[in-house]
Amino acid sequence: MIGFLKRLMGGGDAAPAGGKKGVKARGGQGFDAPLEIDMPTYAIGDVHGRADLLERLLGRINEDAHARGYEAWRLVTMGDYVDRGEQSAQVLARLRGLVRGGGWQGGPAEIVALRGNHEEMMLAFADAPAEAGGRWLRNGGLQTLMSYEVGGVSPTADGEALVEVAARFAAVAGPDLEMVRELPAWARFGTVLFAHAGADPEAPPELQSERTMTWGVSRFFSIPRKDGLWVVYGHYVVDEAGHAGGRIAVDTGAYYSHVLSAVRLETGAEPAFLTS
């Protein structure tokens, strides 16, 4: 899958860290819409329980924004904060501080946190553990539970055992679960759409299901958008963050690659990438 996506994206078409000021960003591969956005924006890919990498990348983004002299800038996080890595509780605590606390002094003017499919699996477990627990546990939920010090569960647990674990999880993770329930599936600024798993290229964002944007559809990669929207997405792991055909990939498999990536977007410049 990684090799396929890399070939699809043209082998990692990443711009230099400084971008290309003074040029009109174009998507390539049959997509020729300009990139226009209301303020400089950084979008961080899938964190998956790597609080250490998140903290490091936030520092790099902050330094980059100050070095470029931005008076106002935006931070977007692309979902999949939990599972697989060992620090999901720490990631959600940090995210809750950012979203509810408004960031940090000298930081972004706006913070937008999106929901990913792993957050949806976690919420499904909390709401219906006997029905949804097995799927979540097999896809990294065990690591998330361990990060909250909720033990005594195995990937084969079912029925009453899952109900009991879900109750203990809700007791310690209540504020984080409440925050995650409020996260939107997508956001749009100018000609840039942000959605965890991309979006159906044959429908405007407001007319497609949120499930499409959190779980994805295969035609996202095969059909160019005709509405002029660039799409920033995670969900699909690539070897190196990059862009092609108006699609901007930022998930570099942080939980095993030890590389968390972000894209910097501003009107009239090529997308530029930062890593932890």
Rank of each mutant, 00 (worst) to 15 (best):
F189L: 12
V237K: 07
V232G: 09
H258C: 09
G245K: 03
P205Q: 01
M179W: 12
S209D: 14
R225P: 01
G253R: 06
F189R: 14
F220T: 05
F194I: 04
S257G: 02
A185K: 01
P205T: 01
G198R: 07
L183W: 10
A262T: 05
V232Q: 09
T191S: 15
V238D: 10
A197K: 04
T214G: 06
Q208V: 00
M213F: 00
D251K: 10
A254T: 12
L265I: 09
S261H: 03
H243Q: 12
Q208Y: 11
G190Q: 08
L193W: 03
L183V: 07
R211P: 01
V217P: 00
P205M: 02
S209A: 14
R181L: 08
W186K: 03
A254N: 11
P224N: 04
P201A: 11
R247C: 12
D251Q: 10
V238N: 12
T191K: 10
V217H: 02
H196Q: 05
L183M: 11
L193Q: 03
T252I: 14
L260F: 12
Y256S: 13
V238C: 13
E210K: 11
S257Q: 06
G198Y: 08
A195M: 11
G190H: 08
F220P: 02
H196W: 08
T214V: 15
A249V: 12
V231L: 01
E178L: 06
E240I: 02
V231Q: 00
L207S: 13
G228D: 06
L183Y: 09
H243W: 10
F189A: 15
L193K: 03
T252N: 15
T214A: 07
V180F: 10
H196C: 04
G190R: 08
P204Q: 13
L193E: 02
R181D: 09
G246Q: 04
D239R: 08
M213T: 01
Y233N: 10
R219H: 08
S261W: 06
P224L: 04
Y236F: 06
F221E: 01
D200F: 04
W230G: 05
A195P: 08
E202T: 14
L260H: 11
G216S: 06
I248A: 05
R225T: 07
M213R: 00
E210L: 09
P224E: 04
I248W: 12
S218M: 01
R181E: 14
L207K: 14
S218Y: 01
G228C: 05
P224M: 03
F194P: 03
R247K: 15
